[in-house]
Design a protein around this nucleic acid. Structure first.
Lengths: 156, 156
DNA sequence: ATAGAAGTTTAAGTTAACTTTAGATCAAGG
DNA sequence: CCTTGATCTAAAGTTAACTTAAACTTCTAT
């Protein structure tokens, strides 16, 4: 038992969450609408977030930087156990597949960097000859935009 | 003088450009509206693109993959010499600054990858303690969205 | 000559991820 | 009590980069 029962309030306001996470209150409301985070309500109707929402938000921001969409992030979060607070292992399970994704994007950027000197620099940047335009890279055409020469974007 | 005067037509249609570049005709019209590419017109009003537009489009797609916006790309293209066909050196000048940009993004991804195991994996992903949240990373807040913990996105 | 493919324009629609606005209500300090 | 700052909801606005639709016109091949 603690000597000093200075207890933090169990829940925090949206302003507090915004201040601590750096995510705007409007974005937090948006995330709640999307079902990515949840809150209780005070009698007044004001949101009261459980403290562990901060970790969830950290996860969301982190995943976004890697290139996941909010839809994908929602799907990931949906895999967390219901009812109990997620453990380290739970979180780790979610992010275990991301390494490959990051590596793929890094590889693409490195490929682009070579192309920078080898193709644009050397003057061979023509659609027929540039090796960045080889058929192997023309695979994934899904969604709008030009995804032809340089391969489909993995999520960033 | 060539023995066989089998000459390619000097200009090509929008459909031809689309087919060769993999960029949709609607996107090409859009690019023209934005001033990224230019065409002459046949008597009928149909666009006739000079063949070298293909290289310009290659450049645009390439730059997009690296993370430049169309505005930025337009600015870059604006640096090309007026009147004469750009040389290798001209193109190289444009892309010379991109290496740094690519490196920065790769560095960020590598940082994220460490964070994956070090922060999410170990369970320390809390806003106050995670080293991804250190003040050095909180620099650039420009534009909407949450750019706080993980540094601002350099363009991807 | 005629069908069907390809082109044209203008305007509006799309998607993601939020932000902004408006009009009200709530909470805390003096 | 009163003022100031924080919250609330719902709906509309924002930005990038295109796409789609509608209503025609022009080319090309048979």
């Amino acid at each position: 038992m603690p000597g000093f029962p200075i207890r933090l309030p169990r829940t925090i306001t949206i302003g507090e969450v915004a201040r601590r996470s750096g995510v705007a209150a409007s974005a937090l409301r948006f995330y709640e609408d999307r079902g990515l985070i949840a809150s209780e309500r005070a009698g007044s109707g004001h949101r009261r977030f459980p403290r562990h929402v901060l970790r969830r938000i950290a996860f969301i921001v982190f995943a976004q930087r890697i290139g996941l969409t909010l839809d994908e992030i929602g799907a990931e979060l949906g895999k967390l156990p219901q009812g109990r607070t997620p453990t380290r292992a739970d979180w780790r399970r979610l992010s275990s597949g991301w390494s490959g994704r990051i590596d793929a994007r890094i590889a693409e950027l490195q490929r682009l960097k070579s192309g920078l000197t080898e193709c644009i620099g050397c003057g061979c940047l023509s659609l027929e000859r540039c090796r960045l335009a080889n058929p192997a890279d023309r695979a994934g055409i899904n969604g709008p935009g030009a995804r032809y020469w340089l391969g489909d974007r993995p999520g960033s």
